[in-house]
Amino acid sequence: MTQRFIAERKVICEDVATGLRRNVTIRIGVPYWPPGDPFASCPVEYLGLFDEFADAKGVDTLQALQQAADVDDMLRRLGHKYRFFWESGDPYFDE
């Protein structure tokens, strides 16, 4: 089955230790109810950063979508290892 994506963001990721930069594409898929799972899921990909990433979970499809779309929280948690920039080169966070 081909995954359908409903939102996308492109950023530049810089490794703090090496200064190497790479392009990262964050994509959010369509939330769904996995068979037999009491929680809804929403696919999220961090292409160029992680090879695999678990679907976001929620009590319903709206919460699963909210969890998947909270990319700023995920990028902040990676701040000890990476710096992030918009494609323009401007810092992603104003900190």
Rank of each mutant, 00 (worst) to 15 (best):
M1R: 15
T2G: 13
T2E: 14
Q3V: 00
Q3N: 07
Q3W: 00
Q3L: 08
R4C: 07
R4Y: 05
R4M: 07
I6P: 05
A7S: 14
E8F: 08
E8I: 08
R9L: 13
R9F: 08
R9K: 14
R9T: 10
K10A: 09
V11N: 00
C13I: 04
E14G: 00
E14A: 01
V16M: 09
A17S: 13
T18D: 05
L20P: 03
L20F: 07
L20V: 07
R21V: 10
R21T: 13
R22T: 12
N23Y: 07
N23S: 14
N23I: 12
V24S: 01
T25Q: 06
T25E: 04
I28M: 13
I28C: 12
I28L: 13
I28W: 09
G29H: 04
G29F: 08
P31A: 15
P31S: 14
Y32F: 15
Y32E: 10
P34N: 15
P35R: 15
P35V: 11
G36I: 06
G36L: 12
D37V: 03
P38T: 04
F39G: 01
A40R: 08
A40T: 02
A40F: 07
S41N: 14
C42A: 14
P43L: 11
V44C: 10
V44N: 04
V44G: 03
E45S: 08
E45A: 07
E45F: 04
Y46H: 01
L47R: 15
G48L: 04
G48T: 03
F50T: 01
F50Y: 02
F50A: 01
F50G: 02
D51V: 00
E52L: 07
E52M: 06
E52H: 15
E52S: 12
F53K: 11
F53P: 03
F53M: 09
D55P: 06
A56W: 05
A56D: 06
K57Y: 13
K57E: 03
G58T: 00
G58S: 12
T61Y: 04
L62V: 15
Q63G: 11
Q63W: 05
A64C: 07
A64L: 03
L65W: 08
Q66F: 13
Q67N: 13
A68M: 13
A68P: 03
A69Q: 09
A69L: 10
A69W: 03
D70C: 13
V71Y: 15
D72T: 10
D72I: 10
D73F: 15
R77S: 08
R77N: 06
L78T: 02
G79P: 02
H80G: 09
Y82F: 10
Y82D: 02
Y82L: 03
R83G: 02
F84L: 05
F85W: 06
F85D: 01
F85N: 00
W86Y: 11
W86A: 08
E87T: 09
E87H: 04
S88K: 06
S88V: 02
G89W: 11
G89Y: 09
D90I: 01
D90W: 00
D90T: 03
P91C: 09
P91A: 10
Y92G: 00
Y92C: 01
Y92I: 01
F93K: 00
D94P: 00
D94R: 05
E95K: 00
